[in-house]
Design a binder for these strands. Structure first.
Lengths: 99, 99
DNA sequence: TGATATTGTAATGCTCCGCATTACGTTGTA
DNA sequence: TACAACGTAATGCGGAGCATTACAATATCA
């Protein structure tokens, strides 16, 4: 499970899961997928290319359409977000323990 | 645990936890808290009043300072976000099962 | 009590993000 | 070959997070 994964490894972006697994499984085009989600084709395309984040609303849409939990999509996105921040930024916050 | 809570009940906003539990526990002022987090006093104030969401970066800051997991703060925020969307919006997405 | 610290809040300005729409070129396919 | 699907750029809009500044109200303490 996730808790046993290498913490330095970049987590799977939700877009990758949609692109690699979900869409092929459904045998559905991006255009059709976008239509059913009620968003534009561009929105789906950019999400699949991992250029856009899964928003809470998008998570609800995905959950509704696919019969999965919105939480799981958001959790995937969170993992990516946190990984990116920890990699890129230098957040200098001193832990209170050090006091 | 959370999974057993009433799904219709509004989840606890992270700001509430900070305001009700964390800050009092630490006996720390908002001003000092903001300084240690490396954000403005206004940012903390609005978060405590639940007028602002915990961003991924803020979650990292909180985790660092308090020695807790950033994930837990984000999870709290997710719960609020999803609840709000499900309450307020009408996302008309037909489940694929219905096909 | 008087000075100082803390807090709530409004106003401004900046930047970034999500999204729709439109448009155009490429590629795959019936 | 005509059409569908896709990648992608441009434009515009609205909203969110954040800093800074400022002012008033309240709390605390010497």
């Amino acid at each position: 499970m996730d808790s046993l994964r290498d913490p330095d490894r970049k987590p799977t972006h939700p877009g990758e899961a949609l692109r690699e697994d979900v869409l092929p499984e459904l045998g559905m085009t991006q255009t059709e997928f976008a239509r059913r989600l009620g968003v534009s084709r561009l929105t789906v395309s950019e999400l699949l290319h991992e250029r856009r984040r899964v928003t809470p609303e998008m998570a609800v849409r995905l959950g509704r359409l696919l019969g999965t939990s919105a939480e799981s999509w958001l959790a995937m996105q969170n993992a990516v977000d946190l990984w990116q921040i920890r990699q890129a930024e230098v957040i200098d916050v001193e832990p209170l323990d050090a006091a």
